[in-house]
Computed example of a mutant assay.
Amino acid sequence: MSLSKQDIAYIRQARTILDENFDKHITIPQLARQTGINEAKLKEGFRELFGFSIHTCILQLRLQKAQELLLTTELSVTDITYHIGYSHVTHFTSLFKKETGMTPTEWKKKFGPPEP
């Protein structure tokens, strides 16, 4: 796909919106409207520019934030689930385990600060 400089600017703007709002429910149609690019070009261009889909980007952003919160706060897994934009703990836990090979609790025990 051939992307114009304007398309690239729109797609980068979409990435910024995702970075700042990963914890909210954002649909691709909403993102396309906010940035002024059509959905197909946004989806294809995003993958071309960043090497992964919009959905994968949101998942990665949420998992990074969850890992950070697991390491730096005393928030429960339930609180972290809601904080990063998921509404079901079991869904978040299964995604986390699929991506890291561990549940959030196991991950915190392995990488978090030692308990006093």
Rank of each mutant, 00 (worst) to 15 (best):
K109I: 13
I37Q: 05
P114T: 07
R12H: 10
H55R: 15
I54F: 05
S94N: 11
T105I: 13
I17D: 01
L75V: 00
Q34M: 14
T35E: 00
N38R: 04
R12C: 03
E44W: 05
S76D: 07
R12A: 05
Q64G: 09
G36N: 04
I58Q: 04
F52C: 12
P113F: 14
P113A: 14
T105V: 13
K97P: 05
K5F: 07
D19C: 03
T78Q: 13
R15C: 04
I11C: 02
V89N: 10
K97M: 03
T81F: 08
Y10Q: 09
N21G: 02
H91Y: 14
F50V: 03
L70P: 07
F46H: 00
T81R: 07
H55W: 13
F52E: 15
I11T: 07
V77Q: 08
T103M: 04
A32P: 06
E99K: 12
D7S: 07
R12P: 09
A66Y: 05
T81W: 06
P116E: 02
E106S: 02
H25L: 15
N38D: 11
L3S: 03
K110C: 02
Q13H: 15
A9E: 11
L75H: 10
L69T: 06
E115L: 06
P113M: 14
E74K: 14
R12N: 10
S4F: 08
R33P: 08
F111I: 00
I17M: 04
I17K: 00
G112H: 10
E106D: 14
I80Y: 02
A9W: 00
